[in-house]
């Protein structure tokens, strides 16, 4: 729970940390938005408690504090607190960006406007809790830029909306799309040799997280090389080479694992070919996410709440 973390961090904070926080307060320009030193320190302590364990070393706390987007954090928290001047600055800086981001995510003008308006309402805090506005901006912690955070929040809202709409699509629309008459998506009925599964699991376990991310993004999510490269901040050709190399080496490792389990080369090759045929189709349909699994933020909210 954040409160316990806050208390312990507050109890242990040194004069050095206090000096750092004072310095950060000056840089944050929180005073312009009615944020007091104590209020600001409380905000930063909450962030520290959220991301670091209570017994985190001072250097870690210092590094986290100095890496925060302090000015944007102060602005967001001041907006969440309903400070009028802060809202003016926020709207001046981010109003146009909100609509641009919504346009990029939704790809369609009316949907984009609707999405942006919806997010704006959440940011402003139309819901009230115990007489106080509950603004989404209060959850911004300054780890990334405020603009990037807005983009992520909007993407999350867009995905949630899309899934909600998919669940409530009318029968007429389904008929027009031909969904009702589509062939049932049968699970592959081919039995897989357990030795193949074992060898595959072993080969996958040897991959690094980043390699698995690249493979999953490319082969499961059908992301383009450019998209993956952008997410990992490398060049597109690097991802291209990596995907090719990983696919080949994975196959080689599985074959090697099967050979260790007594299969001949030919048997191993055949075992790799004879199984799940319609996996690609299943994976694409997986993206539609007809299941009622909540988005991660909701899970997170449940988890943290």
């Amino acid at each position: 729970m954040p409160d316990r973390g806050v208390q312990s961090v507050v109890a242990e904070r040194s004069a050095e940390l206090r000096a750092v926080l004072r310095d950060l307060y000056q840089k944050s320009r929180g005073a312009e938005f009615g944020l007091t030193v104590e209020g600001f320190e409380q905000v930063v302590q909450e962030v520290i408690a959220k991301y670091l364990p209570a017994n985190a070393p001072r250097s870690g706390v210092h590094d986290l504090c100095t890496s925060l987007r302090i000015e944007e954090l102060a602005l967001a928290r001041a907006c969440a607190a309903g400070h009028e001047r802060a809202w003016e600055v926020f709207l001046t800086r981010y109003r146009e960006k909100l609509y641009n981001i919504a346009g990029y995510i939704a790809k369609e003008s009316s949907a984009a406007r609707e999405l942006a308006d919806s997010i704006y309402a959440d940011l402003y805090g139309t819901n009230t809790r115990e007489g106080k506005r509950n603004s989404k901006l209060a959850s911004y912690t300054g780890r990334g830029s405020l603009e990037g955070w807005l983009r992520t929040v909007m993407a999350q809202e867009f995905v949630n909306r899309y899934r909600r709409q998919r669940r409530t699509v009318s029968l007429d629309e389904e008929s027009e799309e031909g969904t009702q008459f589509a062939a049932p998506n049968l699970e592959p009925a081919v039995a897989v040799d357990p030795r193949v599964e074992t060898a595959t699991d072993q080969a996958l376990a040897e991959l690094s997280s980043e390699d698995k991310f690249v493979l999953a993004s490319y082969f499961l999510d059908s992301r383009t090389l450019a998209e993956i490269a952008r997410a990992l901040h490398v060049h597109e050709s690097t991802i291209s080479r990596k995907v090719d190399k990983l696919a080949k080496s994975l196959r080689k490792r599985i074959l090697s694992g099967l050979a260790k389990q007594g299969m001949s080369r030919r048997q191993a090759e055949e075992a790799l070919e004879v199984d799940v045929r319609d996996l690609r189709v299943n994976l694409r349909s997986r993206l539609v996410q007809e299941t009622a699994s909540p988005a991660f933020s909701e899970k997170k909210a449940e988890g943290s709440g």
Partner: peptide, 11 residues
């Protein structure tokens, strides 16, 4: 291409 069994396990 990735072996289909690898895609399934990855999935």
């Amino acid at each position: 291409d990735l072996p289909k069994i690898a895609m399934q396990r990855l999935h």
